[in-house]
Design a binder for these strands. Structure first.
Lengths: 145, 145
DNA sequence: GCTTGCCTTTGAGCGCACTCGAAGGCATAC
DNA sequence: GTATGCCTTCGAGTGCGCTCAAAGGCAAGC
């Protein structure tokens, strides 16, 4: 099998869920893993639980096309913001169901947006505490916790 | 037993790890749970795994003083930023060991700070994707994933 | 034709952070 | 004195998201 030369997916493009145009049309599972930063184990797991469906080549090997890749990248973005896998699955089921489900999809994303904003706030708060501790340890300064 | 009237701890004060001055000197586990937003179960768990030590009153009931409360709040801040409990425990062990461990404590906090910044970045990225989806669903607009 | 390496499926196992249940003690209310 | 409600300890159970192991197939290199 050829050397793995698939570049990890660009963060900018990721934000908009467009894949780099120089990606091969079809990737093996190892290449998909390299491109997405997931492990082959995790890619199989995501397929098994129905988050994505993946073609097979003549030998029965997985063959990831752009659609599959795009979806996986989308899933990783949602996972990176701690959306539960079940919720992601539900959303993607709605996508599969097609037209008519947009209002619910919108509601899901709006709710998730609120969750992200809460998380951002919590993290800022934790960052403040951490900086406070760092400041306390950095000069010869006073009491620690 | 008296009604629970302990106010949840203020977020501003939380940031700097100072408790409101109108908190009772000693809190029952139910009051501590109310003040910190944790459950009594979780408070017992944190004590059991050595994150905090808590006094007992004459009847053997837990009695949380300001020191214990402050530490618990600190732990919740670190947990809110996903610091693993084992890492928190390690840090607090260093605190218990007292002088001489400051450099390692500083290093831990600096590493944690870097982790928080990464998380913030990831969340911003996820927020962008989420907003993108929301925008796609909100007017009568085009293709969804 | 055999080794090597990547692939397949299925099912089980793991680590983390809680979360709960059982069995019983204390103290106030009646 | 007994019911109520909050408390105790200890050990076990849960849910999530992977992660790994076993047993075997395919295909290129020697």
């Amino acid at each position: 099998m050829a050397e793995l030369l698939v570049a990890p997916i660009d963060l900018q493009l990721l934000g908009l869920l467009e894949l780099p145009s120089d990606l091969p049309e079809r990737l093996s599972i190892a290449e998909a893993a390299e491109a997405t930063g997931l492990t082959a184990h995790t890619l199989r797991y995501y397929e098994r639980i129905g988050l994505v469906s993946v073609d097979r080549d003549e030998s029965g090997y997985r063959s990831y096309d752009r659609h599959a890749l795009t979806r996986i990248v989308f899933v990783t973005r949602l996972r990176a913001s701690d959306m539960p896998i079940a919720a992601i699955g539900h959303y993607l089921d709605l996508v599969e169901q097609g037209p008519g489900t947009e209002p619910e999809r919108l509601a899901i994303m709006q709710a998730h947006r609120a969750t992200i904003l809460r998380r951002l706030h919590d993290l800022q708060s934790a960052l403040a505490v951490t900086d406070y501790k760092i400041a306390a340890y950095t000069p010869e300064s006073g009491r620690s916790l």
